[in-house]
Design a protein around this nucleic acid. Structure first.
Lengths: 349, 349
DNA sequence: ACTTTCTTTGCAAACGATTGCAGGAATAAT
DNA sequence: ATTATTCCTGCAATCGTTTGCAAAGAAAGT
């Protein structure tokens, strides 16, 4: 089986007795080329099954039409939704998206930044690793003046454009809600506070407590990676002594679900004896019984914003890059049974 | 703000008084270059912050080191997990993955195939649209002898490498299980039967019925896109008359969840009055009450298989491309409360 | 001393497209 | 008939690497 040659613009030109430049211009609908020639080129392209080589064009134009995206993992509902939105939006503008996962490893993230740069992406959209504290591997993009936009997991100090949900409000409103429901011992399970989004929420939590004149109890703060195993471990700790918390503000929905399941197993009534809230409003929160109060982050909107910002940056490269944009997107506390607001409906019959 | 020049191999060569070829070879660790020169090159690269231009290299080598992937949507748990696995595996081999979503639109899928080809991906991994019946837009890849691997949503007749979960067994085992649990009126909610995976399952369903000498009742078969709205509509139909089904075999978990919620609302006891099963074993199925029997597809394994196959194909391009590989990956029926096998535990205290 | 071999480097031509500039043909203006 | 103008098209350089081939210099063999 002989490998089929990939036809080039040269073959098209030869077939028509034209020069490559004319063919190129015809394909790009250049005004100086006659309609007749364009038509002939179209036909020859069809017949020869010529396909544009984006690599060659990108090299020549230094325009790859490609945007890079690095996310910690795409299996999380929030992430995959943001990415979907970005992809849709970029597609409208004729850009393609190259998605990679850092797997929450700073080393891989660093490597991927290099790969993206080597691929000459025209912009880079990033949600960083939980553990990225040194952002200097992104410097190449800033030095080369290539738009760099962070979303969700944004750096605290590093200079770049940022789009972040209103985590302070998320933390504040949730805590306030739990306090309003009468809880005073509000345990707080958070991801690493080195990550801006978690520390922002923590500020909200603290401010709400302060407002209600509830002293901050360090023994109620648990900080670790937010997965099921850790959540259960923390639950065991929280309920090992004789003083039990009245509410648990979980840093994500996986944790909140684990907490609710733990409570069910131990016969702790939610929300009567323990109120629980999550974060992200993923599909499990409204399905579990009791349904879980959580914070909607509107991921699709976040994605649209990120993509739009990227497009703006691409269109006016000249803009003084001293001014970095920092966008905060709204959140909404979705109140459900687990925090005691919503009536638990009686089963029918 | 002057745009920073991107240094090229030429700058490195000039800085060292070497030729570009020597620098290129040094960077690629060519054996003919002395250690000393290599060291000097490394230093100059460091100092100038030279970065490899993958576009130029790809053009020259006709090797992009890039694999394309087209999936209907990445927000589905199954898909994002498969993609993650593929990305991890490819990364081991030094390949990058370019992910795009067809959004279940054949038109977008077709366009993306063109984009992928234009980007000169070295291989393409696809899970097609639910509605793709004409696969001829993939012909370019076959003609150019570029490896093409389908997974999950594989074409029925189109010649290509395919990796598919054992949908026949999924359909068969699930149906058999429901029959063994005593149900006879087993309603079947399926996605479009034009899609091979759904028709395979349907065959399994029919064979199981046959084995139990249960006549196929067309009025119990519902075929539509599997989302919540359609599921609820179908439920209303199923329970509108006086003869109600004893079991519902739902084509995915979203549907199964909707069915269970519908039943709860209507006071239909699951599993006593109605047994329900889903497909894909997503995280909601074990959280909802009653927990839902579903089919585990081992998406990570599917991804690993797909990536491995792709790597094999890339390494021995010469292989007669007449022989297409068709791989079936195992599934596992995870029995839970909704089909009546597992005891529903009493709440503690 | 002369040839052979080995090591290390450079020249120049690719890869496939785009584009500034020049030029030919056709038409309009003088 | 000559010049100016318009409309098309072609030449050739360019983007940044890679690589076959040639060659220079050093080392080794005769």
């Amino acid at each position: 089986m002989k490998k089929q040659v990939q036809h080039t613009i040269k073959d098209v030109a030869a077939a028509l007795g034209l020069s490559v430049s004319t063919v190129s211009r015809a394909l790009n609908d250049h005004p100086h080329i006659s309609q007749e020639t364009k038509q002939r080129v179209r036909e020859a392209v069809e017949k020869l099954d010529y396909r544009h080589n984006a690599l060659a064009a990108s090299l020549r134009n230094s325009r790859s039409n490609m945007i890079g995206l690095i996310a910690p993992r795409i299996t999380m509902y929030f992430q995959s939704t943001v990415i979907t939105a970005i992809q849709h939006k970029l597609h409208e503008y004729g850009y393609n998206l190259m998605v990679c996962q850092s797997n929450d490893s700073p080393a891989i993230e660093q490597e991927l930044v290099g790969v993206m740069y080597a691929s000459r992406v025209e912009g880079l959209i990033v949600s960083s690793t939980l553990y990225t504290e040194d952002f200097s591997h992104f410097d190449i993009f800033n030095r080369a003046n290539i738009p760099l936009v962070f979303y969700d997991r944004v750096p605290r100090d590093y200079l770049a454009h940022k789009i972040q949900g209103d985590d302070y409000q998320g933390g504040y409103q949730t805590t306030r809600h739990l306090l309003e429901q009468g809880a005073r011992q509000v345990a707080y399970i958070t991801g690493p506070l080195s990550c801006k989004l978690y520390s922002d929420r923590y500020e909200g939590y603290k401010d709400a407590l302060r407002e209600f004149k509830v002293p901050l109890d360090e023994s109620l703060i648990y900080c670790h990676e937010l997965n099921k195993e850790n959540a259960l471990q923390t639950c065991r700790m929280l309920f090992s002594g004789d003083k039990h918390p009245e509410a648990i503000f979980a840093g994500n929905d996986t944790t909140a679900v684990a907490v609710v399941q733990f409570a069910k197993e131990k016969g702790i009534a939610v929300p009567q004896a323990l109120k629980v809230t999550g974060y992200s409003n993923d599909s499990r929160t409204e399905i579990i019984e009791p349904s879980i109060t959580s914070v909607e982050q509107f991921p699709y909107e976040v994605g649209v914003q990120a993509a739009s910002l990227m497009m703006e940056l691409l269109e006016q490269k000249l803009k003084p890059n001293q001014s970095y944009i920092s966008l905060t997107t709204p959140i909404e506390l979705v109140k459900r049974q687990s925090s005691g607001v919503v009536e638990i409906p009686q089963r029918h019959e």
